[in-house]
């Protein structure tokens, strides 16, 4: 059986909130290392990969592999009933029909309990190759959200270009064009505002802004976001969580004409 308790429901609420508009039905794959999720969007352009490691929970117990087939819209409805600071416990039997969720507000001695019906989801798993990316950009997640929102007003696409001088986001549309350039920036007193660019070779790729703005719904999960680019492979956008857990998005590029 699965039993996994989080000190605050916030992490799980925010993670589900970040992906629910991109993927609808997906399996939460539970085993002794934690809870993982991999799912593509309907048009097979983007892939979500989430890993909540066992260490993120206390306690965490999962004796055998359990796939929890969940409709994320339904899960969101249930999670809406959880206070951000409630403790959250997920429980399931070995061959479960339901996922049991318990929210506890210890200060108020209030306990709420829900059973969410599960479904059988025949899921395709994709092998994600280990990639040595040409450019890895770490930047404030709020800045990335601002850039994608601002450029969305200009165009449906953005070209991300990483060079030794910085990273440039540029869009061209019917009304004109716009760009934002960020240079490496490491303020000692404000680590959250750091912009770091690791570059093995310059790279420029074009992506759909519709998907990028969607990924930015994960912004509350982490102050920093990592963008990893290599020529002609999907972009990886990573929101790192405590203890090595993560929420990653992969987005296939737009190539040629």
């Amino acid at each position: 059986m699965l039993e996994a308790r989080l000190d605050t429901a916030n992490l799980f609420k925010s993670a589900v909130d970040a992906i629910k508009d991109l993927v609808q039905d997906c399996n939460f794959d539970c085993n002794d290392s934690g809870i993982a999720l991999q799912a593509m969007d309907n048009s097979h352009v983007a892939l979500v990969s989430m890993m909540l490691k066992a260490e993120a929970f206390s306690p965490f117990r999962c004796d055998r592999n359990i796939a929890l087939g969940v409709n994320l819209t339904s899960l969101t409805k249930v999670l809406r009933a959880a206070g951000r600071d409630d403790t959250l416990t997920l429980k399931a039997e070995d061959a479960p029909d339901v996922l049991n969720l318990v929210f506890e507000a210890t200060a108020q001695d209030r306990i709420s309990e829900y059973d969410l019906k599960l479904m059988d989801i025949d899921q395709e798993h994709l092998g994600i190759p280990d990639t040595e990316y040409a450019a890895t950009i770490s930047m404030p997640s709020a800045e990335f959200k601002r850039i994608t929102t601002d450029l969305m007003a200009m165009s449906e696409s953005v070209t991300i270009e990483a060079t030794k001088d910085g990273v440039k986001f540029s869009s061209t549309g019917d009304i004109g064009n716009g760009s934002i350039t960020l240079r490496q920036h490491t303020p000692v007193d404000k680590p959250n505002e750091t912009v770091e660019i690791e570059l093995s070779e310059p790279v420029a790729l074009t992506f759909s802004l519709k998907y990028l703005t969607n990924f930015c719904k994960a912004q509350p999960l982490s102050n920093q976001v990592k963008l990893c680019l290599s020529a002609e492979v999907p972009l990886m956008v990573e929101y790192g969580l405590e203890g090595g857990s993560y929420l990653r998005f992969y987005l296939a590029p737009k190539i040629g004409d």
């Binding site: 352009v45 994709l126 696409s157 999907p234 296939a252 737009k254 004409d257």
Partner: peptide
């Protein structure tokens, strides 16, 4: 601005 590729063109089914 280029043709949108599919993620399936890069990652293989396991």
């Amino acid at each position: 601005t280029g043709k949108q590729q599919s993620i399936l063109g890069f990652f293989s089914k396991t």
